[in-house]
Design a binder for these strands. Structure first.
Length: 267
DNA sequence: AATGATGTTAGAGA
DNA sequence: CTCTCTAACATCAT
């Protein structure tokens, strides 16, 4: 769930709260200092200069050369309401606002690093282009996909060809363009590249407009669910008729991830 | 009880 | 060194 549209929704809601806010308190709660949660005390006294997003990461540049990096993992929620369970981080600001990070499964990340020093976050360090970057063209995508022989589904999830797709939107994009998820990345027909690029941009954009997709845990900062769930064509729809050709949608594990597709019209 | 879940990453092998 | 694959992380719901 927290894929690009969900993280972008959270970013947009956090921006008015946090831009120019001064951190007065930052502490871990029931979370071990380590790779996933680190150096929080360093942001105390610093001003948050912006609320940015790269792929599924939130990046908050701080006034003394650090960055606060937040990743929601699978179950991370940022909320102004004290969570009943699984609170991991508490942040307070000079303007009296308080924000909490709740993360049931502890797959999220919440750490302060020196700006740009991402060696503890390899996915962020080697993250692909932003899908809304104007340089993300069909030609660019073709060059990226030519670099790998793994299943296109798996390669999209790697964040390398383009940032921000997770299991839900990767399945939705491949369904939209009628590409079988097991197709080798470097064997995806060149003539499909414009459609593939457009599907990635359009689906992510439409999901942002719906505030993302809530399967179980994801909530916006305001506590709302993401409504894109109602627009899913493939993800989680195994056994139902394909909305396009009426064949039965199937579920298969590809690269260790549950994958949903139409065996009839996805080649 | 057993199974599966939205993401990332360490480690192993090629 | 790079590419690819697998399992692990922690917790809850069904």
């Amino acid at each position: 769930m927290p894929e690009l549209p969900e993280v972008e929704t959270v970013r947009r809601e956090l921006e008015p709260w946090l831009e120019h806010a001064i951190v007065s308190h930052a502490a871990l709660v029931d979370a071990p200092e380590g790779k996933k949660y680190a150096n929080l005390s360093r942001c105390i006294g610093q001003t948050i200069e912006a609320v940015q997003r790269r792929g599924k990461f939130l990046i908050l540049p701080l006034s003394e050369g650090d960055e606060l990096i937040i990743h929601l993992g699978m179950t991370g929620i940022i909320t102004p309401k004290l969570p009943a369970k699984h609170l991991r981080v508490k942040l307070e600001f000079h303007n009296a606002a308080t924000l909490y990070f709740q993360d049931t499964r502890r797959f999220g990340r919440f750490l302060v690093v020196k700006a740009g020093e991402y060696q503890s976050l390899p996915t962020l360090a080697s993250l692909g282009i932003e899908p809304f970057d104007e340089a993300f063209s069909a030609d660019y995508l073709a060059k990226q996909l030519a670099k790998s022989r793994t299943a296109i589904k798996t390669y999209l999830l790697s964040q390398k060809p383009v940032a921000g797709l997770g299991n839900i939107y990767a399945d939705e994009v491949l369904w939209q363009v009628q590409i079988h998820p097991r197709t080798a990345s470097n064997a995806v027909p060149k003539n499909l590249m414009p459609q593939l690029r457009d599907a990635i941009v359009d689906i992510l954009q439409k999901s942002i407009e719906a505030q993302g997709t809530t399967l179980n845990d994801y909530r916006t900062v305001n506590g709302e669910v993401g409504a894109y769930l109602e627009q899913l064509n493939a993800y989680g729809q195994a056994g139902k008729p394909c909305p396009r050709c009426k064949g039965l949608l199937e579920r298969e594990v590809i690269g260790g991830r549950s994958s949903h597709f139409c065996p009839q019209c996805q080649q």
